[in-house]
Design a protein around this nucleic acid. Structure first.
Lengths: 110, 110
DNA sequence: CTTAGATACATAATTCACTTATGTATTAGA
DNA sequence: TCTAATACATAAGTGAATTATGTATCTAAG
């Protein structure tokens, strides 16, 4: 697991981008996909995940659809058009940040 | 200026690495060097900088030397041997984190 | 058949690294 | 002479996270 401090500020970007790449997904599914993509390094906690999803929904970046699987309920999230713009913005911010960090730290990212 | 959220957790790493690359430096000088290295993108605030330096010193990662320039006082910081180990650790943590992020976000860092 | 672990959602209390605000003092240039 | 830059420092407040807690369903093992 990563030094969790570094993750701060990256959660929204991760959620938006993974939703963009995978289409509609539900919360638990997002935690599993991120875990797999990161080779167990990024383990999203529910206390961070759900509030973040709710916030993005409230801001109109995500839309939801509740689906019943038998007695179990799943809440699927997907990007709205505004969400789609936001992903691009957030991802390029992060890339820019990473590039800045590599010049400040004087390291190569092969 | 970067979305400041992303900077969270990177301050120690930046300070340690810049000190490693530049030898002994004082606080204000660090802010200026980081500003230059980042092309004005990372502007360290004093409220973050000084507590971080004090903490690293208290933990034995940095040693200080107070130098008087006329009436003005400068406090120079440099790495201790333990500090030198810590830099390596922190930098590789950050590189690892960046690599993880690029696989999760499915982006190339040219 | 029952129970532990995975699945699935959610929120409240707390933490802590940061920002913002404030304070002091020196030096250089317009 | 007064503003901006240099140079240090700390206190109050913020906010995104962690940690803790709660509810409930499904599945596989014993």
């Amino acid at each position: 697991m990563h030094s969790p401090e570094l993750l701060k500020g990256t959660l929204q970007t991760i959620l938006l981008k993974v939703l963009k790449d995978n289409g509609r997904m539900y919360g638990y599914e997002l935690t599993q996909r991120v875990k797999a993509l990161s080779e167990e390094r990024i383990l999203l906690t529910e206390g961070a995940l759900y509030p973040a999803l709710h916030k993005l929904e409230a801001e109109g970046m995500l839309k939801t659809e509740v689906v019943s699987m038998g007695k179990r309920v799943r809440k699927y999230y997907s990007l709205t058009p505004e969400g789609r713009s936001l992903v691009k913005e957030r991802v390029s911010e992060l890339i820019d940040f990473i590039k800045t960090m590599s010049s400040v730290l004087n390291v190569e990212l092969a």
